[in-house]
Nucleic acid binder design. Structure first.
Length: 898
RNA sequence: GGACGUAUAGCUCAGUUGGUUAGAGCGCUCGCUUCACACGCGAGAGGUCACUGGUUCGAGUCCAGUUACGUCCACCA
């Protein structure tokens, strides 16, 4: 039971880092930048945030990509896997600001330049964490050529793209209602917003008609925005309010006259049927305002405080306090007509978690339709293939209804927008902010790679949405806009693997930018992998106590609370499963569906690793006894191996190699991993190694050749999934005379290795041995004693009989026609007969026979019934009917022998 | 409010274009100092395939509906 203290066991935690160092020292991960593009296979890793630590999603995606990369490297492709990190504007800036706050200062205090230096320093110190973690996982990427989305070259690529899009008229500045995140004090894009359910109060407020003839009652959950109301709207179809349109109301607390307008947007069956219109703080109202030519007022500023000077009592109050104060004031004036609990969805910032405040502001936007069209076509016509199909549909639907992208972010850490402003009147204010604050009409604007000549130019302080630079990742990392050898050789990349949550945020934008600027799609295949949930089905998250650190699985560490048997109980610690086991487990769990994390699958991976290492140890022992010539000799299956089990394992190995590669090519990683497990356990170890234990390597040259061949081939095909153990075992086998396994070349498929006859023969042997063992168990006969028996069946030559005798522990005598008292067991081709003896009691076997007979009779009855059915015989395909007839005949034979 | 997905053994999941005795791993039971491996070896038990109806000679598989759960998209105050 002990997890340690076994000197013979392979210990991944000790071996793996050493193996990784071997790969790096040998330059296995290097690629040839001048290779033929037709031979290249490349992947650009989704760059993790510099602030990040490896989480389950990274570990899964890293494993997936590494499987693809390693398989194709061993196929002889010129492989490049670009790795690096993303500068992650908001996340990184937040970290550094927290650090500054802890020191009692702030970014405003130290200024932009110092802040950026500080952030770069932070990145140098902490930014490499996740890359190191990828190495521990075994990720075989181009570490010598690591990229960062704010490298000098990358900055140039971003600026170049921005300037081009600006000049093409796709990037523009405008005042729009944006998703203002009070947490990061920046606008964010629609895609960074998440809806959450919230219970608010729905208030009904009476706005008096200006002529004193009554009230119009509006319903709102945001009474504080009434200060910026510009109209009241009703549905023109609504009879209750016929005649109101065109009249005016007086805005309570403020006194402004508001027109009553008619707009179909207003639902007659919701609220009061009257809607207050606040274009400055509500996206719907903004659109209605546009339709009716209404002006947009703002009563909330970027800090989330009341502004605008509409009502002095509330000026400067934070939104939440203002709401209460305004409700109180309305109540005092008798204008509050109702309030009720109301549950609805409200936008929150994905990053800061704060409630989005829709605000009018001057931002940079990008028109998307013109870029979206080619990106739609590329997927429609299959230049980019998205797996699975369901994600392709989502991709297309999103692009077809694409909306403008809010590009600017009010941050300092990021790609600063390459735009400069200067006052048209030539004035050069002492404070550059005055230039920025001036109305757009009063300034001239320069967009370019360099600051313009002349005095008075002030650069736009905003930076670009991080996803703008990420969208260039596949080609900017290869040196674009320069026509580098890397770009020629490795673009387009082969595959992009990602979780589907960034299909729009990132994948679609890469396709658009790649087509526009790099002249081709950025990748041929997009694989959307599953999201791994906590064992209880919730999201994996640190704060929920459901997150698992992959490193804790690899080298041992605490289990998160969600693993506790009872709430509050200590969940104990993970054993050090090793990177191979974690990779295997994650791949085995993976799917295109969301899946729950299962520690058992990781344990299964560990078992495979241990099993395979023991199998190799066994083989090494056998090989050591073999003559030198046999050990060195490569197997050539077609030269006719004498032993059927040799031909069988050579054939089976060839098949599993093909199947595994095909499954990986189809992105079916779970089947690939589990198929390897089944092969190693169910064929290689359970049968081949057992079958050859009766042979003497010293006098049997085929044994060493085939054993060595089978294990080397197995190590090769398993290598993409469990690279560490396979590499280590490759060395045990002495195979590293030819170099490292990771750099070895997979043989081409070889039909001469396939041997259906041998496969059939060993199948029969397995069936007989299994039947004999099963009988022993059922009859309570101990496994040790060798029993006398006769194998009265077709299709078993001397070799096969020898295998049966040894592994089923039988003394096989020739069939002698003796029909004396005996136990008979049905096997393929006939029966196994055990004459009555010390352990064999035919009398006691009667019950088993009777049960079997009943079962067979039942099946026969069923089949007879079916075959007697005229409609079945006439309508079912001939081969199905024939198969049923054959089965019936077989069962009748069996019944007769019982 | 729309769209999509998932319900199969105690648990996590497979199940090809419908073909009749529904599989795996883990867990469970029984047996085993079998000379690579107890993270082992051998043998078992365990499922009316969520529910209802339909198509078909035949349905876990196809169709319709119901229920439960999940994900994404969406501007009802």
């Amino acid at each position: 039971m002990s997890e340690t203290q076994d000197p013979t066991r392979y210990e991944p935690s000790e071996a793996e880092p050493e193996v990784f160092a071997r790969w790096e020292a040998a330059g296995v991960f290097d690629s040839d930048a001048d290779g033929d593009p037709a031979d290249s296979y490349s992947i650009a890793i989704p760059p993790p945030n510099v602030t990040g630590a490896l989480h389950m999603g990274h570990a899964l995606n890293g494993s997936i990509q590494d499987v693809l990369i390693r398989l194709n490297r061993m196929r002889g492709r010129n492989v490049r896997w670009t790795i690096g990190t993303d500068h992650a504007g908001i996340a990184t800036q937040t970290k550094v600001e927290q650090q500054l706050a802890a020191e009692g200062t702030s970014r405003q205090e130290i200024g932009r330049e110092a802040f950026l230096e500080r952030t770069q320093a932070w990145r140098r110190q902490y930014g490499g964490t996740i890359i190191g973690q990828f190495r521990r996982l075994g990720v075989s990427a181009a570490y010598d050529d690591e990229r960062f989305t704010m490298d000098d070259g990358y900055v140039r690529a971003v600026q170049e793209v921005f300037v081009a899009l600006f000049e093409q008229g796709l990037i523009y500045k405008g005042t729009r209602l944006v998703n203002w995140d009070p947490g990061s004090r920046s606008a964010i894009s629609d895609l960074e917003v998440e809806d959450r359910e919230v219970t608010d109060k729905l208030y009904e407020i009476a706005y008096p008609l200006s002529d004193g003839s009554g009230d119009v009652v509006v319903a709102t959950v945001r009474p504080e925005t009434m200060l910026a109301d510009v109209a009241v709207a009703v549905n023109p179809q609504d009879e209750r309010f016929a005649g109101l349109v065109g009249r005016t109301v007086t805005l309570p607390l403020v006194g402004r006259e508001l027109p009553i307008i008619g707009d179909d947007y207003v639902k007659t069956d919701f609220g009061t049927g009257c809607l207050k219109i606040t274009p400055g703080h509500d996206p719907n109202d903004f659109e209605i305002g546009q339709r009716h030519g209404l002006e947009s007022l703002s009563c909330i500023d970027e800090a989330g405080r009341i502004t605008g000077g509409f009502a002095a009592d509330f000026e400067g109050l934070p939104v939440a306090e203002a709401r209460e104060a305004i409700v109180a004031a309305l109540r005092a004036e008798g204008r509050l007509r109702g309030e009720e609990e109301y549950t609805h969805t409200v936008p929150f910032s994905h990053r800061s978690g704060e409630r989005i405040e829709p605000l009018l502001s001057l931002q940079w936007f990008m028109r998307m339709e013109e870029l979206a069209r080619p990106a739609i076509d590329a997927v429609r016509d299959g230049r980019v293939r998205i797996h699975p199909e369901s994600q392709k549909r989502r991709y297309l639907e999103w692009l077809e209804e694409i909306r403008p992208w809010t590009l600017s972010r009010q941050l300092w850490w990021g790609h600063q927008i390459p735009v400069w402003y200067r006052r048209k009147d030539g004035a050069v204010p002492a404070d550059p902010q005055e230039v920025l604050d001036a109305p757009l009409d009063d300034v001239e604007l320069h967009c370019g790679l360099e600051a313009p000549d002349g005095a008075g130019w002030v650069r736009d302080p905003d930076v670009l949405d991080t996803w703008f630079s990420s969208a260039l990742w596949p080609f900017a990392t290869l040196g674009w806009p320069d026509g580098t050898p890397e770009l020629r050789t490795f673009y387009p990349t082969s595959v992009l693997s990602t979780a589907r949550d960034i299909l729009f945020l990132w994948v679609a934008r890469m396709v658009m930018m790649g087509l526009r600027f790099a002249g081709d799609v950025p990748f041929r295949d997009v694989y959307c992998h599953s999201v791994i949930q906590a064992p209880d089905g919730r999201r994996m998250s640190k704060s929920l106590g459901t997150g698992i650190d992959p490193l804790d699985l690899i080298d041992g560490g605490p289990r998160p609370p969600v693993f506790a048997k009872k709430p509050g109980q200590d969940a104990g610690a993970f054993p050090a499963y090793g990177a191979d086991a974690v990779r295997f487990g994650l791949l085995a769990m993976s799917s295109t569906q969301d899946v729950r994390f299962s520690e058992e699958k990781i344990a299964q991976g560990r078992q495979l690793v241990t099993k395979l290492s023991n199998a190799v140890r066994f083989a090494v022992g056998r090989l050591a006894e073999a003559p030198e010539a046999a050990r060195a000799g490569a197997v050539v299956p077609r030269d006719g191996l004498a032993r059927v089990e040799d031909r069988w394992i050579v054939s089976r190995t060839e098949r599993i190699a093909r199947e595994t590669a095909a499954r990986i090519d189809e992105f079916d990683f779970a089947k690939a991993a589990l198929g390897l497990y089944d092969f190693v356990y169910g064929e290689l170890c359970d049968w081949y190694l057992e079958l050859v234990k009766g042979r003497d390597p010293a006098t049997d040259p085929d044994l060493a050749r085939v054993l060595g061949h089978a294990l080397r081939r197995t190590l090769q095909i398993a290598h993409p999934v469990i690279p560490f153990l396979t590499e280590e075992a490759w060395a045990w086998l002495g195979a590293d005379a030819d170099g490292l396994l990771a750099a070895s070349r997979l043989p081409e498929p070889d039909d001469a290795a396939l041997d259906p006859d041998a496969e059939g023969a060993i199948e029969r042997v397995i069936a007989v041995i299994t039947a004999a063992r099963s009988w022993r168990n059922a009859a309570n006969v101990p496994p040790g004693p060798v029993l006398a028996a006769r194998l009265e069946a077709e299709g078993y030559d001397a070799d096969l009989r020898e295998h049966v005798a040894r592994l089923a522990r039988l003394q096989l005598a020739p069939a002698d026609g003796d029909a004396g008292d005996a136990v008979t067991i049905v096997v393929p081709g006939g029966q196994l007969v055990l004459p009555a003896g010390e352990h064999v009691d035919p009398e006691a076997d009667r019950a088993r026979i009777a049960a079997r007979r009943a079962n067979v009779e039942k099946q026969i009855a069923g089949l007879e019934g079916r075959l007697a059915n005229e409609r079945f015989v006439s309508r079912a395909p001939a081969e199905v009917v024939a198969a049923e007839r054959e089965k019936l005949a077989g069962l009748r034979d069996e019944l007769a022998s019982l």
